[in-house]
Computed example of a mutant assay.
Amino acid sequence: MKMYHVDAFTDQLFAGNPADVCLMDHFPSDEVLQNIAKENMLSETAYLVKDGTDKYQLRWFTPGGEIDLCGHATLATGFVVFQYCQPTSNLVRFETKSGELTVAYVDGHYQMNFPSYPLNQIPVTDEMTATFGVRPLAAYLARDLMCVLPSAADVRNYQLDAAQLAKLPGLLQNITAASDEPKYDSVSRCFAPKLDVLEDPVTGSSHCQIVPYWAQQLGKQQITAFQASPRTGVLYCENQGDRVSLSGDVVLYSVDELKIEE
């Protein structure tokens, strides 16, 4: 099977969030899918199967297991479909564990539309303060935990401790603050030690929680988000009520042939 290594949410190689996209005729066993993801050791490996209609079946695996929603690997998969499967199309539909997702090519960027996460506020705890080295201004919990830190410097300077992070609620743990750079609205970082991913470089699904928060706080629907991982990445976002539009750039690194036997 073909596997495409793609850097998402960036316009240059060796930045953004890398994902491997495997294009296949059918899904092999979950064990095989998991083993490929472990071998790749990226935060996400995406698996794509054409379902005989105008849609594709799409699944995502981390090294620690299957996940129900992933932004950067969906963006990467959309890029692969446009480049190698449907070069004359400007919209692709995916059937996933989170329902139908789409990727479109709009104004020079690849654009996704995802369901928003509800802003369920929870009490800030001493454990959160101990983990992040500063007391969060607020905390929210949906699938993931989001802690709002006092400053962008607090987000950038956080030295991650996987053991402490794993004790906090949420599948992923996100930290965010208002940006200290005028070209961005927010800054964030994302951690997933429960999925064997210490820090995810640029995270689309996290912004299904981050974008509604900053749209509410800033009184605007268009949010330009900077993820301050060592690789960094930029997401161009729009809050749409119960949906979030996430756009970004994509760069191809390599095309490989996997020799897999079930």
Rank of each mutant, 00 (worst) to 15 (best):
F191W: 02
S89K: 15
Q222A: 14
A46N: 10
V21T: 09
P212I: 07
H72T: 05
N157A: 11
Y213S: 04
H109W: 11
W60Q: 08
N40G: 06
Q221K: 14
N157I: 03
N90A: 15
H109E: 11
V187N: 03
R243K: 08
V32C: 13
H5W: 04
D126K: 02
G52K: 10
S29P: 09
T224Q: 07
G65L: 09
A37Q: 13
L23I: 14
Q12T: 09
P169T: 07
E262H: 12
L23R: 09
Q121V: 10
G219V: 04
A177S: 15
S247N: 07
Y213E: 03
E181G: 00
V124H: 03
M128D: 05
S29W: 09
L235W: 08
D256N: 14
F9K: 10
F114E: 07
P115Q: 12
Q173R: 13
R231M: 01
L137T: 10
A228W: 01
E181N: 02
S98E: 01
G71T: 02
L13I: 00
C147I: 05
T203C: 14
V148N: 03
Q121C: 10
K220D: 09
P63E: 12
L168Q: 04
V134G: 04
V250P: 14
D107M: 07
A130S: 13
V244K: 05
F226W: 15
D144G: 02
P63R: 07
T131V: 12
F94S: 11
L23D: 05
Q164P: 03
V234H: 07
H207P: 03
S247M: 12
V124R: 03
M112K: 05
K183M: 06
L33D: 09
D249P: 00
Q221D: 13
D180E: 11
A15Y: 00
T102P: 02
P169H: 04
V187P: 01
D30R: 11
H207V: 07
D107A: 12
M3E: 07
S188P: 02
D30L: 09
Y253W: 13
A139H: 00
N157V: 00
Q111N: 08
E262Q: 05
R59C: 05
V197S: 04
H207C: 06
F79E: 13
V250L: 11
F14S: 07
A8W: 08
E31C: 07
H109A: 13
P18E: 05
F226V: 04
I175K: 05
D256L: 11
S245V: 11
S206N: 02
T77G: 11
